[in-house]
């Protein structure tokens, strides 16, 4: 009996140690902003929560609707908005990373076809340990700041 519990404990510990980054990250409110007509690019936003004990990094993102997918952020330099690619998006242990308008986002560049409201874009996030996670992000009309896209206020 004792031996079994030791074995079980050992298994649990190793399972903990082997937990993939993708398993410790949960995604809330993922959405893609509907690209206005003629806009060749748009952005996806979401909140990434890391329930694990280790910091996790999103190294890349991919999706089938655009030719390129990149991780970007905005730097507000005295009112001048500078969009720049980032190498990774870090999610601290027990913390979260907010991808939201005006800041971090997954950028969908060179859309293959026009999107429409309600479409679902599967976005694959790849983490620093090679594990990955598919996030289904709904396409939503652009809304003003302070009005979360998920809560439709009319």
């Amino acid at each position: 009996m004792k031996r079994i519990s030791v074995l079980l404990a050992g298994l649990m510990i190793s399972a903990g140690a082997l937990a993939a980054s993708a398993d410790s990250v949960t995604v809330q409110n993922p959405y893609v902003r509907l690209a206005p007509p003629n806009a060749p690019a748009t952005a996806a936003f979401m909140v990434l929560k890391n329930d694990g004990d280790k910091d996790v990094k999103v190294m890349k993102a991919d999706n089938p609707t655009s030719k390129l997918t990149e991780l970007h952020t905005h730097i507000n330099d005295n009112g001048v908005m500078k969009m720049r690619p980032v190498a990774a998006i870090e999610i601290k242990a027990k913390g979260e990373a907010k991808l939201q308008p005006g800041g971090l986002h997954v950028m969908l560049i060179n859309l293959k076809a026009p999107m429409k409201e309600g479409d679902v874009v599967p976005i694959t996030l790849t983490f620093d340990d090679g594990s990955s996670k598919v996030v289904d992000a709904k396409v939503m009309k652009p809304v003003a700041a302070g009005m979360p896209a998920m809560e439709h206020k009319h």
Binding site: A39, A41, M81, A144, A145
Partner: peptide
């Protein structure tokens, strides 16, 4: 500019909602 994926849509959506 229209290639602007985030800032312009946020500004314009805010103005339109206003």
């Amino acid at each position: 500019y229209t290639y602007c994926p985030d800032i312009c849509p946020t500004s314009l959506a805010g103005t339109a909602a206003g």
